[in-house]
Amino acid sequence: MLLFSVIASAVAPGLALLTFFYLKDKYDAEPIHMVVRIFLLGLLVVIPVIIIQRGLTLGLGTHPFVQSFFISSGVEELLKWLVLYFIIYNHVEFDEPYDGIVYAVTISLGFATVENFMYAWYSQASIGTMFIRALLPVSGHALFGVIMGYYFGLARFRKVNNTKRYLVYSLLIPWLFHGIYDLILTTVTDYWVWLIVPLMVLLWYGGMDKVIRANNRSPLRFQKREEEVNT
């Protein structure tokens, strides 16, 4: 019974958010087998993240800034970015800008689900604590994924010079927000909620704007309109 409760409270938020962003794809939903594959890679990427973070902690120490921006957010966002770049970026199924968001959110939530499960299992967290984690770290990972995926989509499909800069943005901007998020939680003890809530509101507002923008840039949008007119 305890194991079931831990699994349910740890897994449900990630699956709910994944479903939410998956259904936001207005024109051509991604194959389920691809989404499952990337989600599983998100689960597995936890292993090298833990190994690298432990090694960096031994070498760089535990200063909050170093921990937040380099050991925590730096390693996590870099490894997720590398998986997306080498497996998804040139994949045939990556055929519209919003797909970048789908796959980046998927790998982020795969990672967040394992992280959430480990926290729930080892800390014996209450339902209230897991609810807060669903609102903060789990949704935070999803929104960092939205940012990463949005700029992946721009790099892949925007027909302008120097699109490579969008690949840089796809790593640096989620890394920056993730680092700020972690730094607040590790350095502010009494009034952290007054900083985290505005940050999460900003991330949700910006994330949903990027969802709309990515869908509006889909080359399939005009094809769908033509089909509707012809019918």
Rank of each mutant, 00 (worst) to 15 (best):
A155R: 00
T129W: 03
N216I: 03
F177M: 09
F222Y: 12
F111C: 03
M200Q: 15
L172S: 05
E115P: 10
E76N: 11
E30K: 12
A10V: 05
G179R: 09
T19P: 03
W121G: 04
L15I: 07
W175D: 02
G149A: 05
L176M: 08
W175L: 11
K80L: 00
L171I: 00
E227N: 13
M200P: 00
E115N: 09
E115K: 08
L15T: 12
G179P: 08
F131Q: 15
K80S: 01
N162R: 10
F39R: 12
V11Y: 03
R156A: 01
D28E: 15
N161L: 12
A134I: 03
L40V: 13
N90W: 00
A12L: 15
G61C: 04
F222Q: 12
F70W: 13
F152K: 02
V6A: 11
R217G: 15
R221N: 05
H33I: 15
Y22W: 12
F144S: 01
S108M: 02
D182Q: 14
S5H: 14
V66Q: 07
Q67T: 08
L195H: 11
I184T: 05
D25M: 06
N230V: 06
N161I: 01
N161E: 07
M200W: 11
T163G: 06
V146Y: 14
K80Q: 00
L136V: 12
G61N: 11
A8L: 15
E76I: 02
R221C: 03
I52M: 09
K164P: 02
Y191H: 14
I212Q: 08
L3Y: 14
Y169G: 01
S126A: 09
G153W: 00
N162F: 10
Y181Q: 03
R213P: 04
Q124H: 15
G140N: 04
L202W: 09
K164W: 13
F144E: 01
S5W: 14
I51D: 09
Y119C: 07
M200K: 11
L78Y: 02
R165Q: 13
L176N: 05
D209I: 06
